[in-house]
């Protein structure tokens, strides 16, 4: 729903991600976070922040 919301106003839905990771899955956690950081970096700065 949040992704749909962002898309409606024109913000890239890729800025939100939902994953289920167990406390035992340390490697998966690290991998997902690293991946997601790369994805958001590729999208560039958030359009939400007002630039003066």
């Amino acid at each position: 729903m949040v992704r749909q919301l962002l898309d409606t106003v024109g913000i890239e839905p890729g800025r939100v991600r939902c994953e289920w990771i167990s406390s035992a899955e340390g490697t998966k956690f690290a991998r997902v976070i690293a991946e997601f950081v790369e994805e958001v970096k590729a999208l560039g700065p958030s359009p939400v922040v007002k630039t003066a």
């Binding site: 409606t8 890239e12 359009p47």
Partner: peptide
Amino acid sequence: QHASPAERLAYWF
């Protein structure tokens, strides 16, 4: 819907 995401963003913001 409006046209592109960039146009939507500019409009709503």
